[in-house]
Design a protein around this nucleic acid. Structure first.
Length: 856
RNA sequence: GCACCAGUACCUUAAUCGGUGAAAGGACCGGUCUUAAACACCGGUGAUCCGGGUUCGAGCCCCGGCUGGUGCACCA
């Protein structure tokens, strides 16, 4: 008797080598005319493959940042994506499933500062490790399209795109108050600052600095980025996060004039209907005019102190809404354009420079923050909206307008009727008054309707070394001059000192920096800032479509074949930044005529985190599970299967070593039972179960098999991988239980089907099992189809209830009529005992399930 | 504080339309095999957060509460 031992260490490399040698997962950009031209296509024909050209499908997981070794989150992401890719292939699609590396970035550079090792070296080592492990996991990647964003052949095109944006006015330079990380010595995007005011990467307290920086005009796209969310198939919570981030509000811009210094100050408000209730005016401490306004007044010193104090506060301290309101008067007034009133100006830290115009009109009666400030500073509070009469009072109008009580508590945020405004607005519902007032302001030239966004322009320059150089030359005569396309890529030079000193380390590479101006030929200097790495990852999915193209970023025909990505997969931590930037790039490139679609990712799946003992894995906690160690111990199939079995893939899941053993046992059982069965059956045979005459246990196993086919197919469509695997486990349990009592062909069919269904999750063992049983390549088989006839039963156990309680069960035929079912139930012995002469008042029949008799 | 999601056995997860006695894996217990153990095989224990409502019938629907998670949070 041959020993049957499941040995992934033997099985997995064997199949991996075959797939590598035959380049099984590579796809060309030229669709072959149907499956006919493809010699390797499924030998059994295959419904989905037959006739016409196969459909194209682009399945993409977010590209990894190659730092150190892959972690368990990578295993989950790529196991997930691979399952989807395999499933689509076997449904008949040509699937593009590429891989690359987001290779620029701070960690490699900081490592270089510590060790002196060039970032290129450490990154290359890490990439090699990622590549090796992806191979050992058996992920079905088209390696011919592999790319890394730090290769000149890639970033040359990143630079080309930057220049496209620059020429279109979408990339610009301006001095701005920027977030500066003193530890990393670089500027951060707003998005990279944590809510507590620390750097996302290193945790240092972020400072504010005035510097000239490069920005991309993403705000031009705010409206489209918002609206087009409706048309894509993304998780609702991700869309919500994007909508909140864009933060669209409708309202009006209204001009308040400071007559003392003769300057107009526009404010943005969403509530122009409350304009008549404005009793003071507040500016943000960062507002450039604050000191100018206070100069020469007796408030100058106090304002100076207050502003300094406010600027040194962290976002966390300042952002706390429960904090008592602080501020100081500016000693100036502005005129409310609707009624000519002079109202006092204040500076207070509850007003934010980043939002609106950095100045607000304060309406304490109808805004909580303004109310709190007014109470603290003893400022007038004027009600201009009356709530509608309370429901319980008789339909009598509310008490007459005025300062009196009876109108409810202030501040009042809700809807109502205007009072204390102008005679022609008083009495109007506030919604209506809002548009009337805006129209009136517009006519008077004192304001206009306006839409405001929370979204800021994207700050893309970094004073760091390890990034894509910005391809611009500074010429004293010509200004900002783009590097001519034929001189791209502007290669990143080697430097000796990576340490940032408030300017990019590139500034030290004199030979590289000093150039002649492409326009006038005069002396000029290269831009020394590099790009935020999010720029690199904002277009990589397009490069995959044509990654070896040396004369263009892509051939438009290649994009037409594959884009947009049909299924994108990645962590929810990228819900805002990466996904927003990639969408912006796509739209900008569409406007410039380079692509002909508006959204890069048609469908998005966000995977949950993998935790250990309920906590995020981290080196400091010592609870890191290494994929390499797991794969070495139990094999890639077990690791992949387990991580998908552990729970719904969009939820967080806790890793348990015992759970891994369970899945390992399951795969071992499948393999052993199949090896045994293959041996008993003699030569492998593609001739699978003849089912028409099956009965007894054979029929039961056949039914279970088709149930599993149906279940797994449905589960895969909705990404319920955990239940799909559980269904195969159930099928295998039945195979094992019935193995002695069914015909060999039935058992072989059931086991081969189990392997076929499991292939997207555990490709190696599934391929091996399928080969042993049938001599065929499972990945060349079309996805199995469940036989409708076998999903139905010709008879079933009818549940007989009396008053909702199960009292008996009897066999009923599947086509029994409602009347027959009632009779069957009434005749059941235990039902008779419980009815016992009582009156049957109601009979509920659920065909296929039960009959319930209600008795009294 | 606001919004959304979730509470099922000791643990992690299932359960189309409201329809049987709530399923899978792990853990645990017993048996077979073994000198013994591990492996394997066979068998077993065990659950719908609390309170109300709708219904012939509720894990599933509605209301209230409790607990946990996520997102937003001075955005004018």
């Amino acid at each position: 008797m041959a020993e049957h031992r499941y040995s992934p260490q033997e099985i997995e490399p064997r199949w991996q080598e075959l797939w590598a040698k035959e380049r099984t997962w590579e796809v060309s950009n030229e669709p072959v005319a149907g499956a006919r031209g493809d010699g390797r296509a499924g030998s059994t024909g295959g419904g989905a493959h037959a006739g016409g050209r196969a459909s194209s499908s682009y399945v993409l997981e977010m590209l990894p940042y190659p730092g150190g070794e892959p972690h368990i989150g990578h295993l989950k992401c790529y196991s997930l994506g691979d399952a989807i890719a395999h499933f689509r292939r076997r449904l008949g699609a040509r699937v593009l499933h590429p891989m690359g590396y987001d290779a620029f970035g701070l960690p490699a550079e900081n490592h270089a500062i510590r060790t002196g090792v060039h970032p290129r070296t450490s990154t290359a080592e890490s990439i090699a490790s990622f590549r090796r492990q992806f191979h050992s996991w058996g992920i079905s990647i088209d390696w011919s399209r592999e790319l890394a964003t730090d290769e000149p052949s890639y970033y040359g095109w990143t630079q080309w795109i930057f220049l496209q944006l620059f020429r279109a006015g979408l990339a610009y330079r301006k001095e701005a108050a920027v977030k500066w990380c003193p530890k990393d010595q670089t500027v951060l995007a707003n998005e990279q600052v944590e809510p507590d005011g620390t750097c996302e990467r290193c945790g240092a307290l972020v400072e504010v600095k005035q510097l000239e920086q490069w920005f991309l005009r993403i705000t031009d796209y705010a409206e489209r980025l918002l609206n087009d969310l409706d048309a894509i198939d993304w998780p609702e919570h991700v869309k919500t996060m994007q909508r909140n981030w864009i933060g669209r509000s409708e309202g009006a811009e209204v001009i308040f004039r400071c007559e003392e210094i003769g300057v107009d100050y526009p404010v943005f408000t969403t509530r122009p209907d409350t304009l008549f209730g404005a009793t003071f005016f507040v500016m943000a401490p960062e507002h450039p005019d604050v000191m100018r306004l206070a100069r020469g007044t007796e408030q100058e010193q106090a304002v100076h102190e207050y502003v300094n104090h406010a600027l040194n506060e962290t976002n966390e301290q300042r952002g706390n809404a429960d904090k008592p309101k602080t501020g100081v008067p500016l000693g100036r007034t502005v005129v409310n354009p609707v009624n000519g009133e002079r109202i006092p100006m204040y500076v207070a830290d509850y007003v934010l420079m980043e939002y609106g115009t950095g100045a607000i009109m304060a309406v304490p009666a109808h805004d909580e923050r303004d109310y709190a400030f007014a109470r603290a500073f003893d400022l007038p509070i004027r009600r201009v909206i009356m709530p509608p009469p309370a429901e319980h009072t008789v339909s009598k109008p509310a008490s007459p307008p005025g300062e009196d009580g009876g109108a409810g508590e202030l501040p009042y945020i809700g809807e109502g009727t205007l009072v204390n405004s102008r005679p022609d607005f008083d009495g109007m519902p506030n919604r209506e008054a809002l548009s009337e007032i805006v129209a009136w302001l517009d006519r008077e030239g004192k304001g206009h309707a306006s839409v405001n966004y929370r979204l800021r322009d994207w700050l893309v320059s970094r004073q760091r070394y390890w990034g894509t150089p910005i391809p611009i030359i500074h010429c004293e005569a010509c200004g900002l001059v783009p590097v001519p396309d034929e001189q791209l890529p502007v290669e990143l030079p080697d430097v000796e000192d990576y340490m940032p000193k408030g300017r990019s380390p590139l500034a030290g590479a004199e030979e590289w920096v000093n150039v002649s101006c492409p326009q006038c030929g005069g002396r000029a200097r290269r831009e020394t800032d590099t790009m935020d790495t999010f720029v690199d990852s904002s277009w990589y999915f397009m490069r995959y479509c044509d990654s070896s193209n040396e004369s263009a970023a892509w051939d438009p025909a290649a994009l037409r074949e594959w884009m947009p990505v049909d299924q994108y997969i990645g962590g929810v931590e990228h819900a805002i930044l990466h996904l927003m930037y990639a969408r912006f790039f796509t739209k900008a490139l569409a406007d410039l005529g380079h692509v002909d679609f508006q959204e890069p990712f048609q469908a998005l799946f966000t995977q949950g985190m993998v935790t250990k003992d309920g906590a995020k894995m981290s080196k400091s906690k010592g609870n890191v599970v290494s994929p390499a160690a797991i794969v070495e111990r139990v094999g890639a199939d077990t690791a992949r299967c387990y991580i998908l079995f552990i729970g719904p893939p969009d939820q967080d899941a806790d890793w348990s070593d015992e759970g891994v053993e369970g899945v390992h046992r399951f795969l071992g059982k499948l393999w052993r039972l199949s090896a045994e069965t293959g041996e008993r059956a003699g030569a492998p045979s593609a001739e699978l179960a003849g089912r028409s005459d099956a009965e007894g246990d054979d029929l039961a196993l056949l039914r279970k098999t088709h149930w599993a086919i149906d279940k797994v197919s449905g589960d895969l469509r909705r990404f319920a991988f955990n239940t799909a695997i559980a269904a195969v486990m159930e099928l295998l349990n039945d195979c094992s239980r019935l193995r002695e009592s069914v015909q060999l062909d039935t058992l072989r069919f059931a086991l081969a089907s189990a392997a076929s269904l499991l292939f997207p999750f555990a490709p190696h063992v599934s391929a091996d099992v399928y080969d042993r049983l049938t001599g065929e390549r499972v990945w060349e088989q079309p996805w199995p189809q469940a036989e409708e006839a076998l999903l139905e039963r010709e008879s079933y156990e009818l549940v007989c209830q009396v008053n909702g309680k199960v009292r008996d069960r009897v066999q009923a035929s599947a086509d029994a009529s409602v009347q027959e079912l009632k009779e069957l139930c009434r005749a059941a012995p235990n039902v008779i005992a419980h009815v016992d002469g009582k009156e049957i008042v109601k009979e509920i029949v659920v065909p296929g399930k039960l009959v319930n008799l209600v008795v009294r």
